[in-house]
Nucleic acid binder design. Structure first.
Lengths: 327, 327
DNA sequence: CTGTTAGCGCGTTCAG
DNA sequence: CTGAACGCGCTAACAG
């Protein structure tokens, strides 16, 4: 392996001089700089970030903890995040928990020993112990998707968006609106979106039957089952709000199976604006959270907090209601 | 920051002793070990991988270069890869080119300066210059998805799978079979799958009209357009093989629009077994490449080649024909 | 069984 | 403007 020492010898200067041209610090004579640069070019030398990190305490690496990269939201966020970070010379160290909650803690340690300069946590839950561990770590952190007290968070407006979506159904004339959610331990997707739906219903004096409110998990089939249950009831709703596009897709699949026309027999919407949503039959009305943009914002916030000493701030991202033909 | 030195002092031993218990190397008295372990536990100390890497030349990090993580194939591969790597204490350093080819070279350097122990390249093309650069790097590499001379590769059986799929259409009675491919600069998806289709057609004495063979890019809309062109021809085919599920989805979307019934008016298949494929109407016949398993295999090969000195091998993964209702 | 010593590759004073 | 010297945190001989 070629080191700074080799370059120094080949250019007939000392290691410090090489270091200076590398970091553009201090004075270096035009002559020496030229020689050094030439040698570097010839040899294809690149300074070791490890040695550098050891010295400077900056690794230029950001750790990202996420539950999966197999769904669109996290992969979009990571894309945006990576795009922005790479502009500033940072790389992403991936820590995929594969939905195993206990791995979150473990990865926190792993990221620490790799001396990451910052951590991005794509959260699904906000476990107390995890949060405590994060705070103790003393590494700048941004939590994405869930609000956590005392930490810098970038979240979506789950409450308002769900509420606006509900309002849209109502404006379209629907009075009996069902809801397919997920477990409320997921505060953002499970709790907040449901609250938005319930509040808007209440604000319009509309009652909701218990059987209209179903709970699924994050996959397509789950939406299918939820819709099945919704249709078992006597007092059938005319519309259904699903908290993710995949749940909506599953629901639509069941509706088609039982011969329901969308949106005349049953209107439906998702949330998330998945790539698929616009190609469904009919195209799905949904909410776009602009995840890539959120990822970029996360990067900016993290970078900022890294040199201005950890400010706990709440950033709430914007959303867009995407009106298509399913409602 | 707490270092090995602090631990040594607190436990009243030397740094080497701490190092020994940390790495389970050499002899340490039960007594000393206990003390050290206690202190480590109390302080929450974790050794710096950077310093370790500097010393041992092993970073325990694997770099992954990919064009995007927003589609299922790469994200599944990375999931499998990460799962297997983490079992051996390795982390993934992500280098997302976001489809910008020129970034591949750049990231190669980035990974090098981060002293990654190995590189996984999810390839779409096999640019000569890139391959040369990789070989010069002198870091164990596994190329996934494309065959490259002189490098360890894990590939899919694009040719055979496309051929078997074509045969399946023929067995089902189809004689006029169309094809939606992608540019042949993508050897695996563009060239090999097309070759499989053409060879099987020829082997059965079936001719293919030029207008039946369309080319798209990697998105849904592209499949829509391709199907539109296919139906413009006079001699209409009765079946269409699309080289990705997304192209098939787009094609189905167009078929539905013009009132074609699938599979009676037009049979169709994709390749890739996307999550969506089973929820389409009708469910899509496709090829499953078991990407996560491939990712795990990649990890195993890479790990093996890392201590047995770089063996250029070709691993061809298995595939499964998934028969559903679209053919 | 344990401590001492010597770097790994780099950045940063501090004298020249 | 430049080089010598030191140390970041750790592991690996080498003596004890």
């Amino acid at each position: 392996m070629i080191t700074i020492k080799d370059i120094a010898e080949m250019a007939n200067v000392s290691r410090s001089t090489v270091s200076r041209v590398l970091n553009n610090s201090g004075y270096v004579s035009e002559d020496a700089r030229k020689r050094v640069e030439q040698v570097i070019k010839d040899t294809g030398y690149v300074p070791s970030t490890n040695a550098k990190a050891l010295r400077t305490k900056k690794s230029k690496v950001i750790g990202v903890i996420l539950p999966t990269i197999q769904t669109e939201t996290p992969s979009r966020i990571v894309t945006g995040l990576g795009r922005e970070l790479s502009k500033h010379g940072y790389q992403i160290l991936l820590a995929n928990t594969d939905h195993q909650k206990e791995k979150e803690m473990e990865y926190l340690q792993v990221l620490k020993i790799h001396q990451v300069d910052g951590i991005v946590l794509l959260a699904t839950n906000t476990d107390k112990k995890l949060i405590e561990a994060i705070k103790k770590l003393n590494i700048p952190v941004v939590v994405v998707g869930q609000e956590v007290e005392g930490l810098l968070c970038v979240t979506y407006d789950d409450y308002q968006s769900a509420r606006e979506l509900t309002k849209y159904f109502i404006d379209k004339g629907h009075r009996k609106i069902a809801f397919i959610g997920v477990d409320e331990s997921d505060r953002a997707v499970g709790y907040e979106r449901k609250r938005g739906y319930l509040d808007e219903m209440a604000a319009n004096g509309l009652s909701v039957e218990q059987s209209w409110v179903q709970k699924g998990v994050f996959n397509i089939h789950s939406g299918y089952e939820a819709m099945q249950k919704i249709l078992e009831t006597n007092n059938k709703p005319t519309a259904t709000l699903a908290v993710t596009d995949r749940l909506a897709i599953g629901a639509m699949s069941y509706l088609r199976e039982v011969g329901f026309n969308i949106p005349t027999d049953m209107a439906i919407s998702g949330i998330g604006n998945s790539e698929m949503s616009q190609h469904l039959n009919p195209p799905l009305t949904t909410i776009d959270y602009e995840n890539e943009k959120a990822g970029e914002e996360v990067a900016k916030q993290l970078l900022a907090s890294m040199d201005s000493q950890q400010v706990a701030k709440k950033i709430v991202m914007d959303y867009r209601l995407i009106i298509r033909e399913s409602v």
